[in-house]
Design a protein around this nucleic acid. Sequence first.
DNA 1: GACTAACGTAAGCCATCACTTACCTAACGT
DNA 2: ACGTTAGGTAAGTGATGGCTTACGTTAGTC
Lengths: 111, 111
Amino acid sequence: MDAAVRALAEPTRREILDLVRHTERTVSDIASEFDVSRPAISQHLRVLADAELVNVRSEGTRRLYSARPEGLVELRSWMDQFWNDALSNLKVEVEREQWNERKAASKRRKK
Amino acid sequence: MDAAVRALAEPTRREILDLVRHTERTVSDIASEFDVSRPAISQHLRVLADAELVNVRSEGTRRLYSARPEGLVELRSWMDQFWNDALSNLKVEVEREQWNERKAASKRRKK
DNA sequence: GACTAACGTAAGCCATCACTTACCTAACGT
DNA sequence: ACGTTAGGTAAGTGATGGCTTACGTTAGTC
């Protein structure tokens, strides 16, 4: 998961993922969409491949990259965990506050 | 979203989020769980607060941090988008391969 | 009013990172 | 065989990031 989230931290890499999300693409094809050099894209693709967020396939002299969603599994489950726990915690806090408010209101009535 | 995913890229910050996921905690309380200095934790908390992943509440001289799941909304939706698109793309690729295999098999039969 | 506890912030340091240019290899066309 | 196209890799560089120590500030405590 560490590799995945670190790979996603870079905006260019997220854009690359957006590009290969639907169809596989060659390196120079991808590089043509950015204003950085082709080697830079190659390095980004290496990071994405190490994080298992893309697949590579050789076809002659070209290399075709495509998305590999399974690489997100771990991160997704961690986020879901955080999401649910934090939300339920928020809920009990709100409930406690409402309870305190009701108590204060009844106190005011007794007065 | 950029701020959120960059904040999550750091393992210490993810652990901090795990700590404040259920209950709010003070800075020194959090810092006691790590082997880095308290200022380092303060800086991590600043990054998390800027990314809107935690809430802060002052109580006297102490500051209580708690999780703020809404900060993940954007990142989650991006990931879901990527996830669904990439998976459906994988599906059509597999189907195309199966189709090619069936064609090859019928060719072999004709031979 | 002095002391202390709990934090935030500033400055400096070292590691990591993204990018560039230069180079190399492998597969194709002629 | 030879040039060319596609792309990975190496080395160097500037910027960013996480850490530390030192210091400043604010709210309680005696």
